[in-house]
Amino acid sequence: MAYRHTLPGIHRLGHAHVNLYLVVDDDGVTVVDTGLPATWPLLLRALRKVGAEPEQVRAVVLTHAHFDHLGLAARLRGQWRLPVWAHPEEFFVAAHPSQYQHENSRLWYPLRHPGGIPILTGMVAAGALTVDGVTDLSPLTPGEVLDVPGRPRIVFTPGHTFGHCALHLPEHDAVITGDALVTLDPYTGVEGPQIVSGAATADSARALESLEALAATRAAVVFPGHGRPWRDGVLSAVEQAAAAGPS
């Protein structure tokens, strides 16, 4: 587990190389992405560290519905009666976590990218193969300011998935990019700003185009779905990701 008080009001919980975020303000807590099933006790511990009780959590917002970001969504919805927000293009995958599109076969990735093996093994150990689907989601609208703690602005960033959204937090000069831009690719083990490899990305060309939407936020800090936060500004992260291209 890697817990970080990253910025006042934004807290990163990293587990099995997957990040989720607690966005905290006077109205309560928003959970952004939900990790894997084994993240549950770590989430409870993280809430205590930020001085929050479970009843102060107001909403769950998903950048996208891949299994490694969906792991606790059904539990949070069922036990804590929380609304779970996602773009409508994510609703099918949220209900069927194992059924999502990706460009490349995964069979050859362990041979070409052995650095990804321990990462993927850790994700499986954390419950990646046992994620429950979730239905009756609340729809995100690109461009809207969502009325949840932190009041994130929804930035449409399709490509990794067809309904992927990032969350811009202007008050914090930060953007939560999910897997639209990461600093660690779980399938290759490569670090640094990049889009996720075709082993998990539906449309790499579109993912590269969506970097422009991230750049438009001009955020000082990037909080990715995998890897460490990037503090040299979203423009430099986008530049490096675009140069790296697809893998």
Rank of each mutant, 00 (worst) to 15 (best):
V23M: 02
T6E: 15
L13M: 06
V24C: 02
H5E: 14
W40P: 02
W40L: 09
L13A: 09
L20G: 06
D27L: 08
H11K: 10
V23T: 01
Y21N: 08
P37L: 07
T39N: 03
V24N: 01
V23R: 00
N19G: 02
A16P: 12
T34N: 02
V18T: 15
D26Y: 04
L36V: 13
H17M: 02
T30V: 06
H11G: 06
L22H: 03
V31G: 07
D26M: 10
H5M: 12
L22Q: 09
I10A: 05
N19T: 08
P8I: 13
A38E: 07
L22E: 08
T30G: 02
H11V: 12
H11Y: 14
G35T: 04
G14V: 01
T39A: 14
A16K: 07
R4W: 00
V29R: 08
A38W: 00
P8K: 11
D33P: 08
L22F: 04
T6Y: 11
V31A: 08
G14K: 00
D27A: 13
D25M: 15
V23I: 12
P37R: 07
G35W: 03
T34M: 08
L20T: 13
H11I: 13
T6L: 15
A16E: 03
L7M: 12
G35H: 01
V18P: 08
G14R: 11
P8N: 06
D25G: 15
D26I: 07
D33M: 12
T34V: 06
G35F: 07
A38T: 04
G9C: 05
P37E: 05
V24E: 07
P37G: 10
R12L: 15
T39K: 01
R12P: 03
V24P: 00
I10T: 01
D26A: 15
H17V: 06
N19C: 07
P37H: 02
R4V: 09
V18S: 13
L36F: 13
H11L: 11
V24M: 01
L13S: 06
W40K: 07
L22V: 07
A38F: 00
V29T: 13
H17Y: 13
H11D: 13
H11P: 08
G35I: 06
L20N: 11
L22K: 09
A38C: 02
N19I: 02
H5D: 14
I10H: 03
A38P: 03
A16Y: 07
D33Y: 09
T39V: 12
L22D: 08
T6Q: 14
P8R: 11
W40E: 06
L7Y: 00
N19W: 05
V31T: 03
V29M: 14
D26R: 14
W40C: 03
T30I: 05
L22T: 12
A16D: 05
I10M: 05
T30D: 05
V29H: 08
D26S: 15
R12T: 13
R12Y: 00
L7E: 08
H17E: 10
D33S: 14
G9Q: 04
T34A: 12
P37K: 08
V32S: 05
T39I: 06
H5A: 15
H5L: 14
I10S: 01
G9K: 05
V29E: 11
V23W: 02
D27P: 00
L13C: 06
P37W: 10
